[in-house]
């Protein structure tokens, strides 16, 4: 199961293909890899399909938007090939369409990889793992965790503030100037409270003996085992396999250079 993989290893396993993918400008490579990632996600995790689709679908539209824009404005080095059709002053070429579709597929690959990480990783364990595997300072990781707890209270406070101002007779702001002033009115009390709360949490943490030093024991021991390496090898290995196949079949295109 993906959710039991060490979060730090998982992160690296996802960043490597994520970065390398951005160099491939053909269709075959990102398409094959996308199919693999989606299949892998559903085979080895218990994410409900519905939930996944709910997050994924908006990105499909975004990707289509990217593709369309890139097709219209392909840079000269890529816009070779036959002219498919023309309208106004646009010329749609096969090269342009290829680059557009490739971009869309690459974006979807990033989304699928990110979802695989986000939907299977517990934020607390992720931080603990960054601390234990990558030796991130405890001050930073526990700071992030404490901040994470604030998000819901922040929203609540904003709501209360809006009500309080309405009671005072402050109407909805009109125009840019009014909005700026309204933003300032909200920002000061929100910031004042956030700083005060952060200070309190910091004091509470220190009073429980937190010093920020690495010299501490761990309740959740985040280990890196065989399973983690198998996961790493599958994700990264498959990526190179896909690139190699693409090369063999003659599809591979890196920065516009066909291999």
């Amino acid at each position: 199961m993906i959710s039991s993989v060490n979060p730090a290893v998982k992160m690296v396993a996802i960043i490597i293909p994520g970065v390398l993918l951005s160099f491939s400008f053909d269709i075959f490579t990102p398409l094959t890899y996308l199919i693999f990632i989606v299949a892998f996600t559903f085979l080895f995790s218990s994410i409900p399909v519905k939930k996944w689709l709910l997050v994924f679908t908006p990105f499909v539209f975004l990707a289509l938007g990217f593709a369309w824009m890139t097709t219209l404005y392909t840079s000269d080095s890529f816009s070779g090939g036959r002219v498919l059709f023309e309208f106004w002053w646009f010329e749609i070429t096969t090269g342009g369409v290829m680059v557009g579709i490739s971009l869309a597929l690459r974006s979807l690959c990033f989304v699928a990889l990110s979802l695989m990480f986000i939907l299977t990783t517990d934020s607390t364990k992720f931080m603990l793992s960054l601390m234990q595997q990558f030796k991130l300072p405890p001050k930073l990781t526990y700071g992030i965790l404490a901040g994470y707890r604030f998000l819901p209270t922040f929203k609540h406070e904003f709501e209360v503030l809006r009500q309080a101002h309405r009671i005072r007779g402050v109407g909805r702001a009109k125009g840019v100037k009014g909005r700026l002033r309204q933003f300032r009115r909200y920002a000061i009390p929100l910031m004042a409270n956030a700083i005060r709360k952060a200070e309190r949490v910091a004091i509470a943490m220190e009073s429980k003996g937190f010093t920020g030093s690495h010299d501490r024991t761990h309740y959740h021991h985040m280990s890196v085992g065989k399973k983690d390496w198998v996961f790493f090898a599958s994700i990264v290995g498959t990526f190179f396999l896909v690139v190699f196949t693409s090369y063999q079949l003659g599809y591979l295109n890196i920065f516009g250079r066909q291999f």
Binding site: T124, T153, R200, V201, A204, M205, K208, T217, Y219
Partner: peptide, 24 residues
């Protein structure tokens, strides 16, 4: 609201013990 740094009760209690270097 502002004296905890972890999400669950279990992890919050663990946090204190980790600070004290209590053996796991």
């Amino acid at each position: 609201e502002s004296q905890f740094c972890m999400v669950t009760v279990e992890n919050e209690l663990a946090f204190t013990m980790e600070n004290l270097k209590v053996p796991r």
